[in-house]
Design a protein around this nucleic acid. Sequence first.
RNA 1: CGGGGUGUAGCUCAGCUUGGUAGAGCGCUUGCUUCGGGAGCAAGAGGCCGCAGGUUCAAUUCCUGUCACCCCGACCA
Length: 518
Amino acid sequence: MSDAKTAITPTRSENYAEWYQQVVRAADLAETSPVRGCMVIKPWGYSIWENVQRGLDGMFKATGHKNAYFPLFIPLSFLEKEAEHVEGFAKECAVVTHHRLEAGPGGKLVPAGELEEPLVVRPTSETIIGATFAKWIQSHRDLPLLINQWANVVRWEMRTRLFLRTAEFLWQEGHTAHATAEEAKAETMRMLDVYADFAENWLAMPVIRGEKTAGERFPGAVETWCIEGMMQDRKALQAGTSHFLGQNFAKAQEIQFQDDQGNREFCWTTSWGVSTRLIGGTIMTHADDDGMVCPPMVAPAHVVVQPVLHKPESAAEVREFCDRLVADLRKKHYGGRAVEVEYDTRDIRGGDKTWQWVKRGAPVRVEVGPRDVASGSVFVGRRDKGVKEKESIPVGAFVEGIERMLAEIQQGLFTRAKAFRTEHTRVIDSKDDFYDFFKSPGKGGEEDGAATPIHGGFAMAHFNGDPALEERIKQDLAVTVRCIPLDGQGLCDDEGSPGTCPFTGERSAKRVVWAKSY
RNA sequence: CGGGGUGUAGCUCAGCUUGGUAGAGCGCUUGCUUCGGGAGCAAGAGGCCGCAGGUUCAAUUCCUGUCACCCCGACCA
């Protein structure tokens, strides 16, 4: 507070968008690549993704899903089968048209061997998986079919940002087929809950579960459900989606089965996915002006041990003490895995070392010097507290208490994020209040090129459901309905109750969540 | 894809208006001194100035094109 120096320049309040980029870089999470719109995910960042995969994969398996893998390439004709689906993705597809390179003029390589049918690099796999499902499913006894795939997909985005929107990204996509609409809808909601559970308990990111309006629906879906988190610039981030596809894809691809009466029926299908965007969301939820803050559940390392070794006369005993500390810590468990320890013996200055781990967001840092060895204690810094706020703890108590300390940090991050969301969520009942809420504070107009002004948040307001009205508000304020929330999420007092739409005076079924979004 | 901006050392940038093949800070390497805290001094390494054309005796500098990135829109996980 008194110390104005921060590890990240600019700070969140100075320029949020630039701050985000700097955190990604300073924390060694990812960097841009020579390939347009594609990122290199660095070990520290990839390790977070591996933890995300581990956590979600366990949940998918626990709910009866099996992993499989489908081709990267999708024949163009497959994509054409579902009309809305094509329309939704046509503008952002990478297409493979040749299968060979030949020497051309000037030593250049030129594509040759044109394909009879172009192949689309999957932007999502409904069509190729649907075609496969059609072969796998014959009887009602084959249902439900519950499949997940971990994969990369490509969407040729015009504007990209590391983790949040890249041309290629990593994700999982679940695809299921069911005998009845009820079962498929139940699956859609089950996976939405899995996502919310994961976001809140692993990423410590509070999310709102709800349904998308027609305008925001997945191309080809009957219903799209989502989890929405609030970032520190108060914009919403769609962190995961679960789609009820009805029989749209089943009919387009003839995914049929014979029921117990011998009738041929179309399946009811679902699909659901989360991506490396979750890492972007985690950054924007927790990181601060000193860099990344990793929730312990997904942190690449829980504890960093930094021995103070520069004094030759004490180096050996400090090292020995640390060796034992590291070994003891690794015998402890947190969140279903052994405590992950980074033993940093690099010969660089202690201050540099500390700040590197602060910027990377390691939850706990432990410094051990001769004085600590003499007193049998360790000097502990926590990423959820100030960098200088360190505490000396007897080594035994520290090791014994590590699980609780990590749990406390995890819980603290969630509590803080939720308080932030609550603070910036407002119940709004008049059009004027609504417009005021989303207008830049102080300055009236839009200044371009400057720092993104931080204002607004989530507005809980009634809505008559008219797409034209939603479009007009989007034009006016760049604000959209993020979701029509499920009841019972504690978003406001009269949650789920009918009321009056402040824009039209018409009847509204319930308050919806309005916000600017990524 | 529309509007604006920027491409010079690993990073952040100066130099270009008034053409003569390059600078700073940080980082990196080495040495000495420091050090329970993002050190000080010194010596080094590192760049065909985004790419391709053009004008010119000569282009980082002027002109044209192109590509990439950033910001604001539209689009999207």
